[in-house]
Amino acid sequence: MQNILKIVIVGIFAMLSSVAWAEGFKPAVIYDMGGKFDKSFNEGVYNGIKRFEEETGVKVMDFEVTNETQREQAMQRMAKRGATVILGVGFAQADAINKVASEHPDKQFAIIDVNWLDQPNLRQYAFKEHEGSYLVGMAAALASKTGKVGFVGGMDIALIRAFACGYVQGVKKVNADMEVLQNMTGTTPAAWNNPGKGAELAQSQIDRGADVIYQAAGGTGIGVIRAAADAGKFSIGVDSNQNHLAPGSVLTSMLKRVDVAAYETMKDAMSGKFDTGVRSLGLAEAGVGWALDEHNAKLISDDMKAQIEAASADIVAGKITVHDYRSDSSCPN
């Protein structure tokens, strides 16, 4: 009896370990606290991973951390389980990946939203969110009738200030007198997943006269979109294309193609083309952008489209430089 049980247990373990990882290539991804279904940043990565899995049939090991210490633990565990390439999601994993990458020089690592580390086996993705935010800021200013637009951020950290700063610059480019109302949702990570508070902040900005509201607040942004739709005003989506969430009310979305970064990481690692260093993705690299599809085609007039595209071309050509808040911790406007 005991032997049978042993065989069963060993068998189950063997099955578990042999299901997918037949070849030498073993990818892994460590999602951060938001979780892979956060409708935002982590889910963007998940979409890229899913596309990779569907195209190649390779299973990607994953883990969602629940506290600070698990970031390093999860990376170490993935390395021990034979992962050959490990993707970290978000700047909060920077310290952990820095350490684990230096301890495993034979493995490949990549991280999103980080550009300040220095490891020979680490690829870093940094997005120029300020460039994309600039374009949607122009869209907001062009669509606004009240002369006031709003911004709702998640937490008051450098990354989100960069979104806000690019947005303000875009708004001021169109109309220097325009007022931008700004609010942050909270001071704990719960701020990334609080649609109720997002709706409240959006409503208060609408009450103060804003008629277009841009949000960079993860799951909280869904509340902003909802509140703007209910009040008959415009909102602007972020990270993924959120135009479909409230067609006719979502003016456009600021795209941050973390899915492309995730897909590319896995694909390059699989085909042996994995190079390291910093990849800075802006408008020129199509790493950020603005969304125009059937859901918002009626909201964007030809004139708006022309102006935004002209600015986009100017940014790519270097004729317009959008100031990055993170470069000097200040915003010109």
Binding site: F91, A92, A94, D95, D113, V114, W116, I157, A158, L159, R326
Partner: peptide, 8 residues
């Protein structure tokens, strides 16, 4: 905040 990076 630690200078030279963006994590709080």
């Amino acid at each position: 905040m630690q200078p030279g990076q963006q994590s709080p």
